[in-house]
Design a protein around this nucleic acid. Structure first.
Length: 349
DNA sequence: TAAATTTGACCCTA
DNA sequence: TAGGGTCAAATTTA
């Protein structure tokens, strides 16, 4: 069922912390309602879609307050929020879109992923994020030792997918790549995506097949926008990083993110076993809120795990030298399912 | 030979 | 106007 409503503008709200908190709380409340809705066999899909839209809108508003002073982070014409179903238009049509996209590139959603590669394994595998990209340019960047590579989605012409990414090798550490993504994928996930399975055993076996030190973001294979895809786009707003991974360490003191084991985490297609969440350590404490982006890490006792917040899940595999995997989010703390979550180790890149 | 990459030129933004 | 981003022709690769 297609999205029948789109957001035509970003409200110009005050940037006061109260408004920010209000929007976040509102998004939380809608997320709770969605969770309840998903648990009810008789729940309507329409209600779920409506709640998803409300969640996205709330987070967009919040992100606009946090990140933007000059313009919207996600414009109304972004693929994610497009009202029109994707049509198999001509290449010319999409080239025209490209032109418009080029002119508006500054307003597309942007997020960054830091990836550290194992020099012995080469670059291709770890930089494979599950999508198919085509390189369309390379440029020497002022002050950077290595040139920046420009990639666009291979489905750009056929499906009008406007997602692009830039790959910049770190000057200081040549094993580190900063990948900047622009725009959301409106195309199908590439075929090398690790499939989502429904049992714990299968999850573990599938995760074993993920190349080491590679972060794969799982995505529904649906072509048309659906709740999973919408939430994927939402969660891709999170910044994913692996660094100095080392699975040989099992010091629980690294854990700084808490999921309550009682959280009811379930999706239409999969149920996450609670033991998965028990990999997270649980110092539930509150730290003073600071501005900027925060980083939270999970127990490095996981060598291969998935974790999920409702429909937002990530798969992570750590290699012999992996120790932490982190998500970066713009909040130091938030509430979920009636629990407070606090992040420490603020990280800025 | 088609697909993918490279690279110089052009366009846009700050 | 400089620097970054994109285009598109030329070149390379499978």
């Amino acid at each position: 069922m297609p999205i029948t409503h789109c957001f035509t503008h970003m409200d110009n709200m005050g940037d006061s912390p109260n408004n920010l908190v209000h929007e976040l709380l509102e998004g939380l409340e809608f997320a709770r309602q969605l969770q309840m809705n998903l648990h009810m066999p008789s729940s309507s899909q329409e209600t779920s879609y409506m709640l998803i839209q409300k969640i996205i809108l709330a987070f967009e508003k919040a992100l606009q307050m946090v990140n933007l002073k000059g313009g919207p982070l996600i414009e109304s014409s972004s693929p994610l929020l497009s009202c029109s179903p994707q049509s198999e238009g001509s290449d010319r049509d999409f080239r025209d879109q490209d032109h418009n996209a080029s002119r508006k590139r500054k307003t597309l959603p942007i997020w960054t992923k830091i990836i550290q590669v194992n020099p012995r394994m080469g670059v291709e595998g770890p930089l494979d994020d599950g999508y198919s990209w085509r390189k369309y340019g390379q440029k020497d960047i002022l002050g950077a030792v290595y040139p920046r590579g420009y990639y666009k989605c291979i489905h750009r012409n056929v499906r009008g997918c406007l997602a692009t990414k830039q790959v910049q090798r770190s000057d200081e550490d040549t094993t580190i790549f900063e990948i900047t993504y622009r725009g959301m994928h409106t195309c199908t996930m590439a075929s090398n995506t690790v499939p989502i399975s429904t049992t714990n055993e299968n999850q573990e076996s599938n995760l074993d097949t993920i190349p080491h030190q590679q972060i794969n973001i799982l995505q529904s294979l649906e072509h048309q926008p659906n709740p999973n895809e919408l939430l994927l786009n939402l969660r891709e707003g999170l910044r994913v990083q692996t660094e100095n991974l080392d699975s040989s360490l099992h010091d629980q003191s690294f854990g700084s993110f808490y999921f309550p084991s009682t959280s009811n985490i379930k999706t239409e297609n999969q149920i996450f076993p609670s033991p998965m969440l028990e990999n997270f350590t649980s110092p539930s404490y509150i730290t003073p809120t600071t501005s900027g982006i925060s980083h939270f890490s999970v127990s490095q006792s996981m060598t291969s795990s998935e974790f999920q917040i409702n429909d937002m899940n990530l798969a992570a595999t750590s290699a012999a030298n992996s120790s932490t995997i982190g998500l970066e989010c713009p909040f130091d703390q938030f509430q979920f399912d009636g629990h407070d979550f606090t992040f420490d180790n603020p990280r800025f890149f």
